[in-house]
Design a protein around this nucleic acid. Structure first.
Length: 516
RNA sequence: GGCGCCGUGGCCAAGUGGCUUAAGGCAGCGGAUUGCAAAUCCGCCAUCGGGGGUUCGAAUCCCCCCGGCGCCUCCA
């Protein structure tokens, strides 16, 4: 391969050349949600970036298996179920459905498997028994704990020493040998959901499900393990401890952690509604305790494309400040693309969304004109494409790659301007063909990020109603005024529409209108 | 207290030793285009929190300071 993929690895704190365990194949495990409450935008950072990463790896020719787990048994789920007087399974199901719907809303459609902890209890029990047999875990009055002191490598991911850990206090602490020990299995209290085990009825502790399920699906050593930065400790640290002590081999070759999201000044995570307290901005961290839950509203209000673009605009390891200003800017920036799509369709008669993207990476592809000679535009486009790919190769720098998208857009618009393709009379077949071929690359590169994959349906409402014929009428009247040089009337129509948020653009091939 | 991150133009944001004479976006200004607009194109708009050091060369490495933030307890 003429290119080299580099991935930042949290364990070594360096960018590493990417080499899969099995040539040609990649296994990715991303820590999904514990489904005790509705999803919020912060939960989507990982899924969106990994969705783009999977697309990219597939584009580069890898056969990728991407797993996102659902943790559907946990103290918080139990607590929630009690509060609401429903079963834990119901709580889990509701919130899982909410999570899935939001993933769809953001165009995350590359996940291959979404295993649930409760469906892997046997595997989990087996895993725990193995750890006990190997002397890394101990049974204590119905609970099973991982014995941190037995793991000489404990703390390597988060750079902590085992004995400096406080561990959770409370009643469990009494049963532990050391405060840093963590539960693999928790004995069931009355009224709690429980499964049989060699240690009595109980349920898995947090962490163990990921070790068990990743092994089951991806193997003892797999390529990429992802999650939010907040999971480095204790979750991933404990996963490594469990898996590596159990298997005696590395669990993961590349640990990838996305940055966390923060609410910007005045930002509200849930979309509508007042903030709970005037002081809410003091705690700018986005946490589930802040009464999030309006992600569906957020998607409905701003559109999945915009949110996805907003997330991809910032490097995945950085903190993303989420707020209305950033969202508004993303919306504006994105409109340049949709305007191009409309322009492209007017000129070629083909919808951008119907353009078939190139699905496989081909660096340095020399595209030529129909007569076989290299075309200036196509050469320029190929350069942009290579620059884009180089940025993606460098730890999936989507923000930098997006800058090439804007450059590409400029090249395309410039070509149209230079050849006056807005004028139907100037539309020679060769020029149109070149434009179409160049646009394939824009399609290819936006597709890779999962942007503009399908036509937005937000205009559908307007088209179903009176809006379209009404606007057609006004535009016709205005066009007639302009032909009569009655600009006062024409401008009045445009002005009044503008006050309604409707923009008119007079182009060589007619007047087009745009809703707010 | 321990571990770690960040501070780039008015705002957002790439870049982390020379190939960047600091990408891209938003906003702004000037021009082309337009009946006028809108859109589009062209041009303009930063020496990288402060100080010191290493180096032939630093936004990029080291030290100190100032200012933000995260984790160490549940969190994507």
């Amino acid at each position: 391969m003429p290119y080299t993929l580099r991935v930042y690895d949290t364990l070594t704190k360096t960018k590493q050349v990417f080499r899969p365990v099995t040539p040609g194949r990649v296994g990715i495990y991303l820590c999904g949600p514990t489904v005790y409450d509705k999803a919020h935008i912060g939960h989507m950072v990982g899924p969106v970036i990994f969705d783009a990463i999977k697309r990219y790896l597939v584009y580069c020719g890898y056969q990728v298996t991407w797993v996102v787990n659902i943790t559907d048994v946990d103290d918080k789920l139990i607590q929630k179920a009690k509060q609401r007087g429903i079963s834990m399974a119901q709580v889990a199901q509701e919130n899982t459905e909410d999570y899935l719907a939001n993933l769809r809303g953001l165009g995350v459609d590359q996940i291959d498997q979404m295993p649930k902890a409760t469906e892997h209890i046997e595997e989990i029990v087996r895993f725990i028994q193995d750890l006990i047999d190997r002397g890394f875990a101990y049974h204590s009055d119905g609970d099973v704990f991982f014995d941190v002191a037995k793991d000489v490598n404990y703390g390597k991911l988060s750079n902590r020493s085992a004995d400096s850990q406080q561990g959770e206090g409370g009643e469990a602490a009494v049963k532990k040998r050391s405060p840093g020990d963590f539960a693999l299995w928790k004995a069931a209290k009355p009224d709690e959901p429980a499964w049989d085990s060699p240690w009595g009825p109980g349920r898995p502790g947090w962490h163990i499900e990921c070790s068990a399920m990743s092994r089951r699906i991806l193997g003892k050593t797999f390529d990429i393990h992802g999650g939010g930065l907040d999971l480095v400790f204790p979750h991933h640290e404990n996963e490594i401890a469990q898996s590596e002590c159990c298997h005696g081999q590395p669990m993961v070759n590349y640990w990838m952690h996305n940055g966390l999201m923060r609410a910007g000044a005045g930002g509200k995570m849930g979309g509508r509604g007042e903030r709970e307290a005037p002081q809410a901005t003091i705690d700018t961290k986005i946490s589930r305790s802040k009464g999030a839950g309006g992600l569906a509203d957020l998607i409905a209000e701003h559109g999945g494309h915009t949110l996805r673009f907003f997330l991809l605009r910032t490097h995945y390891r950085s903190t993303i400040v989420f707020g209305p200003e950033g969202l508004a800017e993303a919306t504006t920036a994105l409109e340049a693309f949709t305007r191009y799509f409309e322009r492209y369709e007017r000129i070629t008669g083909q919808s951008f969304y119907d353009v078939t993207p190139v699905q496989r990476r081909q660096d340095g592809d020399q595209r030529t004109d129909s007569d076989g000679s290299p075309h200036e535009l196509l050469a320029e486009v190929a350069r942009r494409r290579d620059a884009y790919l180089a940025k993606m190769d460098d730890d999936f720098n989507t923000g930098a790659a997006i800058s090439e998208l804007f450059e590409l857009l400029r090249s395309l618009n410039k070509f149209i301007d230079q050849h006056d393709l807005d004028d139907p009379a100037a539309r020679e077949q060769d020029l149109l063909r070149t434009l179409q071929r160049a646009t394939v690359t824009l399609r290819e590169l936006t597709w890779l990020l999962g942007l503009f994959c399908s036509a937005p349906d937000d205009q559908a409402a307007a088209q179903d109603s009176f809006v379209e014929p009404l606007l057609a009428l006004l535009v016709d009247l205005r066009t007639q005024s302009r032909q009569r040089k009655d600009f006062a009337t024409a401008d009045q129509i445009r002005q009044r529409l503008s006050e309604l948020g409707i923009t008119l653009e007079d182009r060589k091939d007619g007047t087009v209108w745009r809703l707010p």
